[in-house]
Write a protein that binds this DNA or RNA. Sequence first.
DNA 1: AGAACCATTCTTGTATACAGGACCCGGCCC
DNA 2: GGGCCGGGTCCTGTATACAAGAATGGTTCT
Lengths: 251, 251
Amino acid sequence: MTIRPRQAAGGSGLASQSLKALLGVRDLIVSGTARPGERMSELALVDRLGLSRTPVRAALAQLAQEGLLEALPGGGYAVRAFSHGDIADAIELRGVLEGTAARLAAERGAPPAALDAVRRLLQELDVVVAAPPGERAFGDYVAGNERFHDLLARLAGSDLIRREVERVVTLPFAGPSAFVEAQAALPAFRDVMRQAQGQHWAMLEAIEGREGARAEALAREHARLARRNLDAVLRNAALADRVPGLALLAR
Amino acid sequence: MTIRPRQAAGGSGLASQSLKALLGVRDLIVSGTARPGERMSELALVDRLGLSRTPVRAALAQLAQEGLLEALPGGGYAVRAFSHGDIADAIELRGVLEGTAARLAAERGAPPAALDAVRRLLQELDVVVAAPPGERAFGDYVAGNERFHDLLARLAGSDLIRREVERVVTLPFAGPSAFVEAQAALPAFRDVMRQAQGQHWAMLEAIEGREGARAEALAREHARLARRNLDAVLRNAALADRVPGLALLAR
DNA sequence: AGAACCATTCTTGTATACAGGACCCGGCCC
DNA sequence: GGGCCGGGTCCTGTATACAAGAATGGTTCT
């Protein structure tokens, strides 16, 4: 057991084949090609993806950890079916974890440089929100929104918090931009977007002012926007196709 | 891709070899045999555990997911070193997640049967706490305490919440009984135990009374007992050996 | 005709062989 | 003497062969 980390052996990090397997299987799940409850046979995936069993097997194990697959009692995995309640819980949990990140950032104090980065990002987002609607502005908003949530997860300076926030976000319908695609088709989209941006600023203000409880409450309420959008989407089945991973919803 | 779940093929669920690998490697880590920062070479583990590379490899991947190992940039894994802050964050996070479980249980209402089970357990724990100190009472308390936290994680009726609570508890120093071993050697042990038991009852009362905010706050404060014990242990180095996984603390 | 039994086939778990790259150490040349 | 080069060793990533259990379908017996 050597101590030195070694630089790189074999493939490159999450090597080519393993990465292909992970992305390939995940895509099959979130795209709905593999239906909920369906068994994910290693051999079938080997045929479909053109890889060997080893990386496929690793991908299955990781996706089971992520929660997209469930382990069958006798071995192997099946695509997990999510109920409305599961999705709501995942969103709630994201709110709780982001709220914890925000609270800790406020209580412990975040580095000024990090806060400045958030402020600059929010100023850019202000421009995007004010701009006339369109594909361009839409894509910019999604990217900026994701970046805000990424910065927020890091703001507490805790690797553990960041890891756990990122983890819950891997669920395809729990991410901060999961329902934005569908939102865009709703008439109230711009209102929702503006409300979200207002909450972004309030969170920053609370963190800068060391108001931990306020920052936490704001982050939770912010995640609730996603839940409201979830319900809107479920009432309007035509939108469901635009939400990645909603094929996993058991209806 | 067949639909039927199949009953069992090959080994038995988390089969013999895979389970041996997982437990074996984890024990090597938490027992301190493998030092923090040390590379966990697959071959070395194969030699030491007498298994083949496949189950060892699976165990390494899972332990990396759990956070006990960190992936090295060029491939492979090393034992992760935890700082005091990491441990404090893990405890804080357990408080947050258990707090969420308690709050949701209160808000949504838990099944009466589940609440009755908690009450019976707490009544048994009352007896244990009142009993004269000794090995027997000590072991009973640890078992009962773990069971209380397990029931609490399930009380919200959300699989996701339960999974995430159980997940953070896998970190060896974040579990509800992580520092109890050390506590037992402290003069104030019985006081701490009684205080904890009082919080247990208060949590149940809050959940039954649908007082979500109170239940959440209590669960967070309850986890803080562990943090206080952590600090006590760190001031008293002689106790550190009694806490499993504290060998991972970078000093 | 219906039920029981057996072989086939499909599945995963496990072991192992092969390949490519990195590090280390020794030797060689300037 | 110091720097550079090259072989050996070690590591992981990948592919594949082997084993054992379970479901399935056909066949056969009553």
